[in-house]
Write a protein that binds this DNA or RNA. Structure first.
Length: 454
RNA sequence: GGCGCGAUAGCAAAGCGGUUAUGCCGCGGCCUGCAAAGCCGUUUAGACCAGUUCGACUCUGGUUCGCGCCUCCA
């Protein structure tokens, strides 16, 4: 029985899908005006893990992750770069896909783009106006009237009074209430626009997700995910829009992943303390990054530093080392105690740290027994998390741009073998040290010498 | 100011009202020409103060500290 921590209920709840055996899941994806950073990596990896676990539990999953390809920052960046919005967004969609592929993320079933759903947004906004939930203001914008939605604030636990009392509510004279948010922005010079009943303009941010989820998953679906920072106002506003437009519950389970932090502060664009995925991948193997994310619980904060990545690398190396020299398939036995423990952990709100601990228990058992069945168990369970898919040697020997090339390493190993043969241990040790200085560790065994990178 | 989350060993990170989490690091041993890896053993816990209980890291209350949201953000 899968339990999910439901943000809107603030507790773990047993997951019951709307349609037995099927799961409809929508995750807020990227705004494509720049490279993805580690915070984005976390959302992608976390919901990829959720997607994989649901599928391996037998659910027929329909996973939708949107792409926001029109918004203020995109327009601004395109103008700065002197390129078209289409060029800019396509460039960063391509980059996002490269990063996501590197991290071993399965593509969502559908990746809708906001600009392909303008008509749907116009339709929903019209419906909201008709029902008295939105109004066309004097400045030409269309606003959502938060007062018209009695349960506004139920997701984030905020009340309109408290929000209005907050210090940071910006005053906009065209709004009926300071908390009203924009559904449609009237056109401004040098901005893209679409025709609408309210004149030329473009959509506000929140409406796209209400429309794209409706289009691909219907008015009412199972899981909606995203980073914690989207809980308010984005997801709160989505609920207001969708539930007002459809008169039914929008989403059954809300999932929010925790932040990636740097020095105990949230990694974010505005703070400027972010690391792009591609920069991190220059230094660390993508699987190490994936493992680093998965060994923490998805709702916990995750501190990023080289030290923590190094630690994750060491740990993952232990798993791969245990698999060295054993060829097995990646099929696990569901009845084995390890699979039972793994499943219990994953079904407890996707407790990947505990699931990963099961992998280490198996690695220990494998090191002792060298049993092919244990190897298959380890690989099979790890694969559910998108880990340990590679040949161990290729992981252990993977280098980067400035690594020594393999032929040089093999030559030195050969020379060392000769020295050892001649009992010239001083020379043998000298070669070992020489390679070690270049980050190459040699390991002698009765079958010969193997190597890996530190 | 309003709302919420957290505090676990040297570092990271989970479960659990009483029984080894797990990984890295450290230490001792086995193994090795020497190493590395591995195996065996082992040192470090539960911010603070009360309360509940036969028994609390785990439940309750308070204190302190940290973080997040309330503005674009994954």
């Amino acid at each position: 029985m899968l339990k999910i921590y439901n943000s809107i209920a603030r507790e773990k709840q047993t997951f019951v899908p709307i349609v037995a055996g099927k799961v409809s899941m929508y995750v807020c994806g990227m705004t494509v005006y720049d490279f993805c950073h580690l915070g984005h990596a976390r959302v992608m990896v976390v919901f990829d893990m959720v997607n994989r676990w649901l599928r391996s539990s037998g659910f027929d999953v329909n996973y939708v992750r949107n792409i926001t390809d029109i918004d203020d920052k995109i327009i601004k960046r395109a103008n700065e770069n002197g390129e078209s919005i289409t060029e800019l967004t396509q460039r960063f969609i391509d980059a996002m896909n490269e990063d996501s592929d590197a991290l071993g993320i399965l593509r969502p079933d559908i990746e809708p783009r906001a600009t392909a759903h303008i008509q749907g947004m116009i339709d929903m906004i019209s419906a909201l106006i008709e029902k008295g939930h939105a109004y066309h203001a004097d400045n030409g914008d269309v606003f959502y009237s938060v007062n018209s939605f009695k349960t506004y604030g139920k997701l984030s636990g905020k009340s309109l009074e408290d929000l209005r009392a907050g210090e940071r509510v910006e005053v906009d004279t065209f709004k009926r209430d300071p908390m009203d948010f924009v559904l449609w922005k009237s056109v401004k010079p040098n901005e893209p626009s679409w025709d609408s009943p309210w004149g030329k303009g473009r959509p506000g941010w929140h409406i796209e997700c209400s429309v794209m989820s409706e289009c691909h998953l219907g008015n009412h679906f199972d899981i909606h995910g995203g980073g914690q920072d989207l809980q308010f106002p984005h997801h709160e506003n989505e609920i207001a829009q969708s539930e007002a437009a459809h008169d039914c519950t929008f989403v059954n389970y809300w999932m929010h992943n925790g932040f990636v932090r740097v020095d105990d502060e949230k990694m974010s664009k505005s703070l400027g303390n972010f690391f792009t995925i591609r920069d991190v991948l220059k230094k660390y193997d993508a699987e190490v990054v994936r493992f680093f994310i998965l060994r923490a619980h998805y709702r916990s904060p995750l501190n990023y530093s080289d030290k923590h990545l190094d630690d994750a690398k060491q740990a993952l190396t232990r798993l791969y080392t245990s698999l060295r020299g054993i060829s097995s398939d990646a099929k696990h036995d569901e009845q084995d105690v390890s699979a039972i423990n793994f499943k219990a952990a994953m079904n407890d709100d996707f407790n990947t740290p505990e699931a990963v601990a099961v992998l280490f228990d198996l690695a220990n058992e494998l090191n002792k027994t060298r049993d092919v069945k244990v190897a298959a168990q380890l690989k099979g369970l790890a694969n559910v998390l998108g880990l340990l898919n590679r040949d161990p040697e290729s992981f252990l020997q993977a280098g980067n741009a400035d690594s020594d090339d393999v032929s040089k390493i093999e030559q030195l190993i050969l020379a060392r073998a000769e020295a050892k043969q001649a009992k010239n241990f001083a020379e043998a040790d000298r070669i070992r040290q020489e390679l070690l200085a270049d980050g190459v560790i040699l390991e002698d065994s009765p079958q010969g010498t193997t190597w890996r990178r530190a």
